[in-house]
Computed example of a mutant assay.
Amino acid sequence: MEAIDIEPWLFRVEPLEGESFSHFLGRFRRANKLTPTGLGKMAGLGGAIARWEKFRFNPPPSRQQLEALAFVIGVKGDRLQEMLPPLGVGMKLEPVRLCGACYAQSPCHKIEWQFKTATGCDRHKLRLLSECPNCKARFKIPALWFEGACQRCFMTFAQMAEYQKLIV
C-alpha cells in the first residue's frame, strides 16, 4: 500500500475590527489546534509567530512574511498588516492593557491599547486596565485569551469595566 500525501485543511477565522495581531493569531491557532511553532512551520516562518504574539515587532513582519502567513491562514496580507501597529507608532510590550467596556462590545484585544501614547479608551473615556481589579494578576498576552476573563480569578473582562476610572 502506498502512502498518500494529504494536504492539511484549516478552519478559517475572520479578523475582528481593530483586533491586535496577537489576539488574532491566538484565536486562529486555537480554532485549528496549533502551537505557535506548528503555525510557524506551516508558513515557513520559524519562531516568528511566538515573537509576534508577544508584540515583538522589531523588525516588523516583512511583506513576504505576511504573504506567507496569509497563504496558510486564508486572510489577505493587507488585512494582516492592519492588525499591526502603524509604522512609527511606539508599542508597549508590557503590561498588556485592555478596556473592559470595549471588550464587552467586541470581544478582542485592540492593538491601539498597546500604543505608548494610549492611557485610556477614546470611546468610553475610561483608563485602560493592566491588571485584574479583583485579584491584581497582570493580563497574559492576548494570544492566550480564550475565555475573555482573568486567568487567575475568572472575573470577565466585561465585568472589569465597572472598575475602570474615568479619564479626567
Rank of each mutant, 00 (worst) to 15 (best):
G40F: 09
R56Y: 09
E53W: 06
G77V: 01
L128T: 03
F146V: 11
Q81K: 14
N32W: 10
Q81V: 11
P95H: 09
S20K: 07
R27G: 03
I4M: 15
E19L: 10
L69P: 00
G88K: 10
L144H: 07
A68M: 14
R63N: 05
K140P: 00
F21S: 02
T156S: 15
F28R: 04
R97T: 00
E2H: 09
C121K: 05
D78T: 10
I167R: 07
P36V: 11
I111N: 01
S62W: 07
A161W: 06
L144T: 00
P8F: 11
F71T: 09
C153N: 05
A50V: 06
K110I: 10
R63A: 13
G100S: 08
R51Y: 05
A137W: 10
L93F: 05
L126H: 04
Q114K: 07
S130K: 09
R79D: 07
G46F: 09
R123E: 12
V96K: 06
L93H: 03
A149D: 02
L66K: 05
W145H: 06
C121A: 10
A31N: 04
A118E: 09
Y163A: 14
G90L: 15
F139G: 01
W9M: 12
F21A: 05
P107E: 09
S62A: 13
F57W: 13
P133W: 12
M42S: 01
V72A: 10
W9E: 12
N58F: 09
T119G: 12
F157L: 14
R127P: 00
W145V: 05
G38K: 10
Y103F: 15
R27S: 04
G44A: 08
W9L: 14
I167L: 15
T117I: 15
G46H: 03
S20M: 11
K110M: 14
G18H: 10
G18W: 08
S62N: 01
G26A: 10
L166Y: 02
L25R: 06
N58E: 14
N58V: 11
L98N: 02
A104S: 14
K92D: 06
T35D: 04
L10F: 15
R30V: 13
T37R: 14
F24N: 02
F24M: 12
L10P: 00
